[in-house]
Structure formats: C-alpha cells, structure tokens
Design a protein around this nucleic acid. Structure first.
Lengths: 207, 207, 207, 207
DNA sequence: AATGAATGAGAGTTCATTCAT
DNA sequence: AATGAATGAACTCTCATTCAT
C-alpha cells in the first residue's frame, strides 16, 4: 500500500478512478479486479503489488473517500453562521457542489452502505460512524440555541430539524435516481427546500 | 414453487429463515445458495426443486415479506386516530412489535432497496413502490389537518413530521445494531420518543 | 425390465413412445428421465422400477427398435425377386413405408450412431452390426448372379451397387433433414432414384 | 482465443488433442471440460482463459480441423489427373495418409455431423457445407467425361462411382474400428480397393 | 404398484490471488 | 517494477438414482 502511495499522482489518480467507479457500479463482491486493471491500464499483478488484496484496496478507497468528503464538504461548511437552519441550508449547497466535483467518491461512499457488515471489517464501520459524528458536531458547533422557542428542548429540536432535512434529501435522491447528476437543474429543488426550511423556522423558532 | 408451498410449516419456516437471513446479510448476488441449503439443513438439489432458480426464490421471499409487513404492520395501524402525531406514535409501536416478531423479514426488506434495479424484475420494483404508496396513504388518510397551525402548509408539515420520526427511528436502529433485538428494553426509548413527539406537537400544532 | 414387459399394451406403448421420442430428440445423455416420466404420465419412481437405470431403458428401446425394423422392413422385402437392383428398389419402397409408420423408432435408431461407443456397451454395437449383416444377407439371398456381366466379379458388383444406393439414400436424407417426414412428397425422388437404378443396370448387367 | 494461439506449439497440441478426443468421443454436450483439462494437464481455469466458453472452444476446433483437412487432404489431390476413377484412387490414398497423421481431427470432424443443428451456430454448418462443396468441386474439376460410356448420364455415373467408393471406405473403417490405426497393414486393403476400382472402370467406362 | 421428495456428484463458468519471468 | 499465465475454490443449476411412504 505504501507502494501505491509513492506512485506519481497521475497514475495514482487513474487507478483510483478506475477502482472507485468499479466498486460504485458493482458493489464490493461483484466488482472485478480484472475490469479494474483493464480500466486503469495496468497489469494484473500490479494491483496486488500495490494492495495485497481486493479488501485492502477497498479499505484504502474507503479512507481516501472519507478524507475527500471531510475536506470538500464538512470543512467547507461555514461555522460562523449561528442560525442552525441557515447553516443547514449552506451545508446542503456545499454538499451539492462537492458531489458534483467528486461524483465517483460520493457514488462509492453511497454504495458503501450496501456492503454488508459480514464482509466489511468493523473498523470501517466505526470510521464511518465517526465521520457522521464529526459531521453532526460541525453542524451544531457554535449554534445559537436562543433562536429556538423557549418552551422547546433546543437539542432535541435541532435533531428533529436535521432529520427532517435528511429525510427530504433522501427523498430527493430517490426521485433523481438514475439521472446523471451533472445534468440536473437544481433550481426547482432549491425552491422546494426553501419552502420546507421556512416552515421549520416558523415552527421551531421564536417569533 | 407450489412444491415449496405444500411443505409442512416447520420445514418451510426453516428454509425461509435461512434464505431471508442469507439474502439480508449478503444481498442478492453475494448470497450463496450453497450456504442457504447448509443453513436450512436440506440437500443441494432441493432448493432448485422447490424454486427453479435463485431469482425465483428471491422473488418469492420478496412477496412473502411484503405480505408479512402489510398484515403485521400496516393493517394494524389505527386509522380511526385523526391526530397525525398520535397515529405516527401508534404506528411506531406497531412497527416495533412487528419487527420483533419478524426480524428476518424486516432485515430482508431493508436490504432490498440496495439491490440494484438492473437485476431486479420491474414487477418487484412496482410492488415495492405500491407498498410504500399504500403505507403513505394509510398514514395520511382521514387525518385532521386543522390541528396544524394555520400559517403552515399542512401537507409539508406532515412530511417534515414524518421525516423527523423516521430519522429518529433510523438512528435508534443504528444505535441498537448488534444487540439481540429480543433482549432490548424499549422502555427508555419510548420515553425518548415521547419527548420528541411532544416537541413536534408544540411546534407544528395550534395552541 | 420383466416388470415392464408384463404391463398392459396401452401403457407400455405410452411409455415406449415417450422414451423413444425423448432419446431421438436429445440423444442419450441429454435425454431427461424427468421429461420421459412427465410425457408418459407416470411417477418418477416407476421408470426405475421397470428399468433399473437409464442405460437399461436405452438398451431395451434399442432391442425393441431392432425388432421393429427387422419385422416391418427386412422381413417385408420380397425375396422371390431375383434381380438384385429390382430387389433393392422394392426394399427402398418398403423402407420408406416402414419409416412413415414407425417414425419414432427410425428416428431413435438414426440417433443411435450418435451415442458414442465409450458409453454404449459393446453388445449393442454387436447387435447393430448383426442387424446390418442380416440385412445384407437378406439382400443377397437367392439373387441371380448371372444377370451381372460375365467379366465382373458378381459379389463385388453387388457391393458396389449397394453402396451406391446407400450413398444416394444418405444424401437424400441430408437434403430432407428438418422437413417433417410425413409431409414430404416422395414423387420426384422416386423418379430420381429410378434414373440412378437405370444407370446401374446399364453398367453392371449384361446386355 | 488469441491467448491460446500464442501458446508454444507443444502445449497447444496437448490441449488440442485432449479437446478433440473428448469431443470426438462424447459429442458436444456430453463432452466434459473437466475431463479435457485433466487430460491436457492444465488448471481448470485456463481453458476458460484461452477460450471464453465451451462453445468457443468447439468452434475453434472445428475451424482448425477444417483447415487441416483442406490442407492435408483436399489440396493434396492431384487435379491434373483427368480420369475420375484414378483421381478417386489417388484421393483415397491421400485421405488414408492424412487420416493416419491426424487421427483426432478426422474423428472429431466425423462426429460433427451428429451434433444436432439446433446447438451449432449456422456459420459452422455453412462452413461445413462449403467444405463439402469444395471437395466435390475438386473431385470433378477437369474430369474427362468422355471416358464414360456414351449411353450413360456422365454426372450421375460419377455420383454413383463416388458413393460406391465412399461406401467401401466406410465399411473398411467399421471393420478396422478399434485397431490402432498406426498399426494397420493397409497392403491387403489396397488390393481389395483396386479390385473394386477395376470393376467400376469396366462397368462405367467405354471399352 | 406407485409416488415424488430427497440426494449429491458433476456440469460450465468466474475470479481473487500467486508466481515465474 | 511489471506482466499476465496459471490456479482452484466457489458459484448456480441439472440430473440419474434412491427411498420413505
């Protein structure tokens, strides 16, 4: 694996892209190392020279993808914004941008949920959970709780708001499933989401 | 397939359980018919005597599972209750009970979303969608919209409430993952969920 | 096998027909005992009660078919006819008639050549050869050798004539391959064959 | 398949022989790829590395065999000889030699006729027919028809002569079946065949 | 006499992984 | 550092044969 890390960037990227795409498209087990080396234009032996097994390759891709997501998404969320809903709104925009720019990585991570626990080592599951925890932390850090109506438990309210938004995002994803992400006009969806955010504000925030 | 249906119940259940578990654990393609017969304690040939192919087995399990879910869950939801949040509360209780009693089935259906459309025959996709439509209909039918604060769009509000609850349920599921479901004391969780429902009422309902 | 022989004729015939057809259509190995019992309308076990194995069934069918051929074909050849070519002509007519009336049997025997020696016991091969020898004997018995031009070895001439006719029959068979035998108009072929027989007479017979 | 072509000749030949033998002995469907690899002494996977399927292997063997037959047999027939029977005589000698040197190939091709059309792709059927047409053309090209007695239809006479000879060859083959071809003393047979050819000349040719 | 459920070996094929070059 | 030929276990599925009923 260190062998792989020391490769020059172009080659590294070619291989990463080939592998991410293959795993995203076929899932862990159905992904074919044969197709990966063909797509990447390298010899069959090299893949197992860089990574000692298919699983190690997968785990590497996983950690690599988490890194990308953290840097291109989480770290771009404006933590100066103290209004929770506004921060969520900005986060959603950042996420969309990051997804556009790292389609393979997001597709790959999206497909991770599919790889059943039985086959995936627990430490990956853990990392994934940690990432989600980090994301949540970033989401709540420095938030102005006083905006929430005083008769409500602010933390629980935040959770409910987050779940609502995530629910909406999932539903949106299902609706868009199949469309090529780069060809979607998000205009109408932003309007829709603003509608929902407005209701959330009216419901949970003080007047 | 009729061959299978006419089996005595104990044997049928053993095979069903083995297959549901295998598919839930590994997904469609990665599931091994070899492991299924070993788990079920039947000869290699019998599975293909009962079902002419792996796919037919999968489809049977799918329809079987839908039946269970509809009967043990959806049909148990009290549609006389016109308060949306109260109905959701009752539904959540029914769902927990159904899940407890049909662990494998719920696991299996949960894993279905993941099976790539390409492999699954359209009529299964259709059935699944129909089930979800039915579920939504049951959830919203006869609901008293006037409980929602008049300045909010009632339908959107219902959606937000639903997403909130589903989000909570998912999070709960992840937290409990690994624990043997039958050994969980749900007491504290009900309190927690009531806390959330309370907030939702305060936020979205008229005073 | 004696079990089978003591069955009443209708049932026996049903089973024979089903088996002959299956073997003729798929060859020995690809023939499915499952399909045979289904076609014959008997239980799976009965087939192996009557015949202890697929091979025994095949061998029985083989001997049965030889019997039919000998009785419906060879024995019908008019041995009073002393002109060799005339006898061959009559034999060809009788053969066509027999084939029409025992399509299954002839198809089955035709497919026998396919079953490679490796799998078929030598005594079947032997029987088959014996049948051919018998056929040849019948063909030559009581033939008037004096019709053959005196400068020719009569026996060798007969052989050549026979091979010629068989060659023609084989070529005809290949040409007709695929057509349903009962729907063929043999008219034009008889003319053709008479043409050939005429040449043979002119060539091998005294003037 | 190119993978196979680039193998060194010894290995290629080992595999070819194993496969030709297996197919010749058992026919297409009943031939076992398992037995082929065992006979050839290669790993199970290699066969499918060289040829992507059993069918592709079969088709390769088929075209390979046609090539051999055309080059080692047809092309060796002396087309300068204008006497039909003399040409047939020479052809028979060439054929025996070719058969001796390519036993497997001739056995394999001999078994091809048996493989039911349904399973074999039409282009193979076509090639086979083309080969036969070519063979016939070679046999009749430049032949001096004036040798045939004037009262006979020359073309039909040629057919009869050809069928006669083929019939003799087949009978010879059946008689020799089982003997190791390389240990046969063909001396007596040539005498026999010359006897037959002599009769044919006396019968069909002008005096 | 009759059934058909049950078995397990074997079919063709795929694939991660190794290793000689 | 790089190749791709080679392996063999595992895959889904078929089938002749047996056996409890």
């Amino acid at each position: 694996m260190e062998k792989f890390i020391n490769l020059d960037d172009t080659k590294k990227q070619t291989i990463l892209d080939a592998a991410l795409q293959e795993f995203a498209e076929h899932g862990y087990r159905q992904a074919s190392t044969n197709r990966i080396v063909k797509k990447a234009g390298i010899g069959k032996g090299m893949l197992f020279y860089y990574f000692k097994s298919k699983k190690e390759l997968y785990e590497y891709l996983f950690e690599y993808s988490l890194d990308i997501v953290v840097n291109a998404y989480f770290k771009q969320v404006n933590s100066a914004e103290t209004d929770f809903i506004e921060r969520l709104k900005q986060a959603a925009q950042v996420k969309m941008k990051a997804q556009l720019e790292n389609e393979q990585v997001f597709n790959f991570l999206g497909s991770f949920v599919l790889a059943k626990e039985a086959e995936m080592p627990p430490h990956l599951q853990k990392k994934y959970t940690e990432m989600n925890t980090l994301a949540a932390a970033l989401m709540y850090e420095g938030i102005d709780k006083s905006l929430i109506r005083k008769e409500l438990d602010a933390d629980k309210a935040f959770q409910l708001i987050r779940w609502s938004i995530e629910g909406y995002q999932n539903e949106l994803l299902q609706r868009l499933e199949g469309s090529k992400i780069s060809s979607i006009d998000f205009g109408p969806y932003w309007e829709e989401i603003y509608g929902y955010l407005d209701i959330l504000k009216k419901s949970f925030y003080r007047e």
